[in-house]
Design a binder for these strands. Structure first.
Lengths: 231, 231
DNA sequence: CAGCGAATACTCGATCTCAAGTAATCGAGA
DNA sequence: TCTCGATTACTTGAGATCGAGTATTCGCTG
């Protein structure tokens, strides 16, 4: 909504971390990892330092001290400012209350399904589901460990959310693969036939649509709704 | 997996579009919009032109013609190359079969829940759910229209997936809000008490954790598992 | 106590991204 | 036929992003 001066989500995590106490950038990164927040917010060292610099320029954080231990590189310790606290507040409010579109990898793939033959798609979807299953199981094992240590659930709630999304994606992928294999998904027969014809006759996919009656024996009324050169 | 020369998902859509027939960039963008693919793949004109140029440099597409109609700017028509077709194939295979981590907005927010008072969080989550509900309903109305026109479901399958993710997120947000309000979520009482104490006494949140027995009357064994300055 | 892999703490620069701008044409109404 | 907003088609530059590199120190093993 609001145009942020520093929009990388990592900047949000930096503000959140410095809200606890002043730290140097590398310390922020280790803390995020120790708390597993790097599973929810993408952490990249290159971004970290440029984001901290951008936050400083915007007046959201300020350098309070630079220390040097032995021959190690200098560490600059940053603290959050009042403006930074306000920025974090507004940002968290937006993250929680105002959904903004995020694009997922699988959606892009699904948008171009017909480019592969149906059975190949079904195989790939099942492969995906299997990998995601592993990931979900791993996260749940981690939750069990946390629970057994007496940690309250609120500390890993974002991870619970991720598991629910993973389970949704797994179920969707498996169900879609099954529907493709059984020709239950509308359009699959036509799709399958297209790929068979292309393989057998060496025709171009586009040509098949130009004369559906010739190649499929039926007319597709929706072809006139969404022509291949859809304007 | 494979390091792509042009990694923007829009480049995938460009390759997919040019796989049908040669087009000029703007035509690609109108086709993507007409087919609703811009709901699954982020479309931005600035990115579009730079992506096409990058694809050309990588040898995945080539300019086949530049036409000028009247005094309009020239339109350069591009076609996909064999290398481009191979790239698209590999990319689609990866998109479908190999899940890669994508970070969602809500996860980032959930990771910093304790920064707001419980009731404020619950309000915001319900607000989010209401907005998402609208979006899901809108998509489903669109699906009904498509169905009524006789279009096969495979043409909007990516949108069905989006609806399922939205429904998962809505359910999660509503359930979490409810659990927070009823203190059903572990850690909420402690969380609520922290915010009350900060408001009443003006204490710093960090100080409360240093002497839990004083402020909360009980000790938190997990404090020693994940100290505030977690290494 | 020498060697070596892991951890610490950054830096660099090539891409990538994107809002905003430009400039022509079309089409509907007045 | 004049006007004015919408559409077409693209450009620009400022800033964001990220993988890969670097140099030091720590800690373990043999």
């Amino acid at each position: 909504m609001v145009r942020r001066k520093v929009s990388n989500p990592l900047a949000f995590a930096v503000l959140g971390s410095l809200g606890e106490r002043p730290m140097h950038p590398y310390e922020i990164s280790t803390m995020l990892k120790a708390r597993g927040k790097d599973g929810s917010i993408k952490l990249n060292y290159g971004s970290l330092y440029s984001v901290v610099t951008a936050l400083e320029k915007a007046g959201f954080v300020e350098a309070v001290e630079t220390v040097r231990e032995g021959n190690r590189p200098e560490r600059t310790i940053y603290a959050i400012t009042d403006a930074g606290r306000a920025e974090f507040d507004g940002w968290l409010e937006e993250l929680l209350g105002t959904p903004e579109k995020d694009f997922r990898q699988l959606e892009a793939g699904l948008a171009y399904l017909p480019a592969f033959a149906p059975d190949r798609v079904a195989d790939l979807l099942e492969q995906r589901a299997a990998v995601l299953e592993e990931e979900a199981a791993g996260l749940e094992r981690m939750h069990d460990v946390m629970r057994s240590k007496g940690l309250p659930e609120i500390f890993w709630i974002e991870s619970e959310f991720r598991v629910e999304l993973l389970r949704t994606e797994i179920a969707f992928a498996r169900r879609l693969a099954e529907r493709i294999r059984t020709d239950d998904l509308e359009g699959t027969e036509f799709w399958r036939r297209t790929h068979d014809l292309v393989a057998e006759l060496g025709v171009q996919p586009g040509d098949l649509l130009k004369d559906p009656v010739k190649y499929f024996g039926v007319d597709f009324p929706w072809l006139r709704e969404v022509p291949p050169d859809a304007q």
